[in-house]
Amino acid sequence: MSAFAAVLVLLAMVLLVAAAIYAAGWLLGVARSPLPVVPFTGGLPPAEHAFSRFHVRWYALAMLFLAFDMEMIFMYPWTLVISAVGPSAVIEMFTFLAVLLAGVAYAWREGALRWA
């Protein structure tokens, strides 16, 4: 069986198991329908819906993370060819990383890593 065929079969299986658990909960549970509730914040009712434009303070860190994540796309195939390509592979990759680390150092100095 090819590698990804096994994965597809496993995915189908696990989804079936999840459906079976929900079916078992519906059949065997004490109540068939869910309980309508108010979201819990300690006992007093909330004033608004929670769906809102959440102020995510770590947006600068998310941009930095994207830059590094794109770099990782290069690093994964790089591991396959280190000794084949020789020292230039190591030098190039770690120079690239040093440049990115300079960016991290700048972000750190600017306080992007401390948001609360």
Partner: peptide, 26 residues
């Protein structure tokens, strides 16, 4: 229930505010 409305914040963005009563039984 109302939907959240906006308010000022220290980094200049105006995003939604939620009024949450942290109640007696947390």
């Amino acid at each position: 229930l109302r939907v959240a409305s906006r308010g000022e914040d220290r980094d200049g963005l105006k995003l939604d505010q939620l009024h949450v009563p942290l109640g007696p039984f947390l």
